[in-house]
Amino acid sequence: MSIEVKNLCHVYEAGTPSESRALEDVSFTIENGKFVGIVGHTGSGKSTLLQHLNGLLKPTSGQILIDGVDITADGTSMLDIRKKVGLVFQYPEYQLFEETIAKDVAFGPKNLGIEGEELENLVREAIEMVGLDYEDYKDKSPFEISGGQKRRVAIAGVLAMKPEILILDEPTAGLDPRAHKDVMDMIKNIHEKYHNTVIFVSHNMNDIANLSDQVLVFAKAKLLKDASPREVFAMKEWVLDKDLDLPDVTNLCEALREKGFDLSETIIDIDQAEKEIYDIFK
């Protein structure tokens, strides 16, 4: 599934004193199967953009094409879009409501009209995909498990709909380092297994550098940069000027270069850094 966004604008509460422009003339293309990172400050329009991608918000102007189909046109089936594009909100654990984990995960596919054995298989697959044991967890209440586990269950609730495009808004916000790593590994596994398009918002530059093929930088409702992570992090001054940060590994290599060590410019890959540093001391 490819995504094409053309001149997207969104204005909240147009015509009132609290009118605010959330997106201004945003255009970009995401090819099928890409892993895309979105960075930018709170209030830069990221969340608004994500909600457009599965039809929850209608653009004030502009177009969104998913596999060539304009989802902003009148008469598009919302259920079809929601099936194709799975959106995991920030703190998704706050949307859990069922008595058991299995029932909660089944909510999405059930809304798509899936029943019986097929439903159970989807639920089982989704729960195992997020790293929980189906038999152990299916009958537990989603309110009695830990925060990190709740997050996984909520993500499983979207995965069970088998979206071809998976969108995650700050999937690791508020998690401890261990749960953070688990969730990021899990997202990586999902991408490798299903070859779906993944879009994720993150403030963690290490994750952005590690995982994404393409980075979209937002600031003040505008798309400032659409490039590969290496290209983005090569513009060190610019990145810092936009109040963003460099990945830890890039910072380390830059510090070493300043001390006179012979390393390549803009290393964003830990394996590459390891190899080059090893070569120096060999």
Binding site: V88, F89, Q95
Partner: peptide, 8 residues
């Protein structure tokens, strides 16, 4: 919105 995203 979150529940709508799950097809509600």
């Amino acid at each position: 919105k979150a529940q709508q995203a799950r097809g509600a």
